[in-house]
Amino acid sequence: METITFNDIFQSNILERMTSISIMDSLIGLIAAFLIGLFIYMIYKKTFSGVLYSHTFNISLIIMAMATSLIIMGISSNVLLSLGMVGALSIVRFRTPIKDPMDIVYLFWAIIAGLLCGIGFILLAAIGSILIGIVLIIFVNKMKIENPYLLIIKYQDRSIENSLEHIVSKHVRKHTLKSKSVMPGNQFELTYEVRAPEAEMSFINQISTLEGVNSAVMISYDGNFSA
């Protein structure tokens, strides 16, 4: 049985593979991935419409673009390494839950940009990222205008329910009663899902001045309701 010595390992073609990699091309690919990742970072920050902005998640988009580019440049010169890398990446799982579908879009965008930079299609990655950024800015800003809100009203007198319904229907484009709660001590709570421009939200002041209303709260509603 043939044994492998340390000298055999030393005389392998590792150094040849290292010299076959163009340092300049690698630097250009990584710098391009960084710049496109920075562009994704700015677009995400500008279009973010959630409750809590995560700076670390945004930074990870830049790193993901660069890391993907680095992986692609490493496996592009070796078929066996590429197969092993695919097998290794197949066991990777995201442990952090991603609630906003737009976050998945940005993750996929960063990976694709890094992949294109890694194989040398830098111009395609740049043009595609610019177009995607423009589309996101246009449509996400439009979505903010039509964003639904939750209107939570706490009151004591059931006789004002018709008045509340009249005020809400008069000042919003669309409203839906999500829930009605009856609590001890003759306390009631209504939760409406409403759609109204931010400039027309002054009606909540009118609701709060009604006799018998304890509080009226308007909060942004991203589709995940939690009591």
Rank of each mutant, 00 (worst) to 15 (best):
N78R: 05
N78T: 07
F48Y: 15
A113L: 04
W109A: 02
V92M: 13
F121P: 00
I127K: 00
I75T: 08
Y106F: 15
P97M: 12
D103E: 15
I122G: 00
V105A: 11
N58V: 07
I72Q: 04
A32D: 01
L70A: 15
I72K: 02
L52Q: 13
L52T: 15
S60G: 05
L38P: 00
I127S: 01
K46M: 09
N58Y: 02
L116G: 08
I119S: 04
V51I: 13
L107I: 11
F48W: 10
M66P: 11
I130R: 01
F108Y: 05
L115S: 06
A126V: 15
A32M: 07
V86P: 15
Y53H: 02
K99M: 03
G118V: 06
T56E: 13
A32H: 05
A88R: 07
M73F: 10
N78M: 08
V92Q: 09
I134A: 13
Y106L: 07
V86T: 10
I75F: 08
I132D: 00
L52A: 12
G133C: 04
T47M: 03
I36C: 12
L83R: 01
L131V: 14
T96H: 12
I104E: 00
M102T: 12
T56K: 11
L61Y: 08
A113I: 10
L38R: 09
I132Y: 01
S77N: 14
G50F: 10
P97L: 14
R93K: 14
I134P: 10
V86I: 14
A110T: 11
I40D: 04
K45D: 03
S60M: 14
L89D: 01
T56S: 15
I98T: 12
